[in-house]
Nucleic acid binder design. Structure first.
Lengths: 170, 170
DNA sequence: GAGCTCTCCTTGAACTTTTAACTACCTGAG
DNA sequence: CTCAGGTAGTTAAAAGTTCAAGGAGAGCTC
């Protein structure tokens, strides 16, 4: 009989061949795609994909602004990383910081007109890149499956359904 | 009437709401997952996910070695990035470089015993992390779909079915 | 076999990300 | 009010990545 049953000592649950193939494809595809989009945006918009995503989130937010912590959460990055990113975007003139009146520790990241401009200029090229790399190659069923799968994975990794507890959102 | 029809000037093929949801889920999941695995491996193996992947590829190769270019290709990273990575892994004593006898420009990256060791120690924890984050949460059908989808996407981005033209592989 | 081009791999500099403090401010208990 | 502990955001330093350039050898042509 198996006498060990703790997570750390029992027999590892290795991936079988098919699972390994799936996992490798996942790694390959995500690596290639992120790289591809990074280059596309670096070339056409002068910024990496993550930074572009930040501008998009701001553009979609009321008054084109978001608290730093909130933006970090939506973009799934750390506050530290966001601080650096916003500093860079500020240098480009695409984002501006504003103090939060309600909380003196708080900062808003605000999309500037120049930032809006850059988005409008580069969004078409970016969607096209995403379509060509992903949507154009998948059937409707596959797109649906992809959405569902990714939703499940993201949900599982979300640091405890975060965000439900931000004062500003009450 | 629409009078323009060239790629650069025609109306952008925007993503509809459902497509946007799919795309966002994709970004969220891949960002969270890569971050999760990076932390897991940094904590337990003292290296980022990509570096771990390099050791795995070497471990699976004949004589635990691979030409630099070949390794870069399998791992889907640039040669430059690989050079830096191997330099670091070499410092850790997990990889060693060897000259290629057939081509004086060439280098082999070779997995050392210490590298093998580190893999054996940390592989169980890593598979478990992957399982918990991905496979345990998906049905068999979803796993299959994920594999197929990722294979398609990777295939589309592969720089021209690369690798078919490496002399060593003839 | 000289010269031209291409490939293999590395390098330094610029840039981005991580990690671990750290400042400043808010909040609630007493 | 005061103080302990938590939160918002930043920062310096270390680590990793990208980009452009370059050294050195291979390989092809004449």
């Amino acid at each position: 009989m198996e006498y060990m049953n703790t997570a750390s000592t029992s027999e590892p649950r290795w991936l079988n061949d098919e699972e390994q193939r799936v996992w490798r494809s996942y790694i390959d595809a995500t690596t290639l795609l992120e790289d591809h989009l990074d280059r596309q945006l670096q070339r056409d918009a002068g910024m990496p994909h993550v930074y572009y995503g930040l501008l998009v989130k701001l553009a979609e937010s009321p008054h084109r602004r978001l608290r730093m912590t909130e933006l970090a959460m939506y973009a799934k990055i750390t506050r530290s990383r966001l601080s650096h990113a916003v500093a860079r975007l500020e240098k480009n003139g695409w984002v501006r910081r504003e103090d939060c009146p309600d909380d003196k520790r708080g900062q808003f990241a605000v999309l500037t007109d120049a930032g809006q401009e850059v988005l409008q200029q580069t969004a078409p090229g970016h969607v096209e890149a995403v379509r060509q790399a992903v949507f154009d190659r998948l059937t409707t069923e596959q797109q649906k499956a992809l959405g569902e799968i990714m939703r499940i994975v993201a949900e599982g990794l979300q640091p405890s359904e975060a965000g439900a507890d931000l004062p500003w959102l009450r």
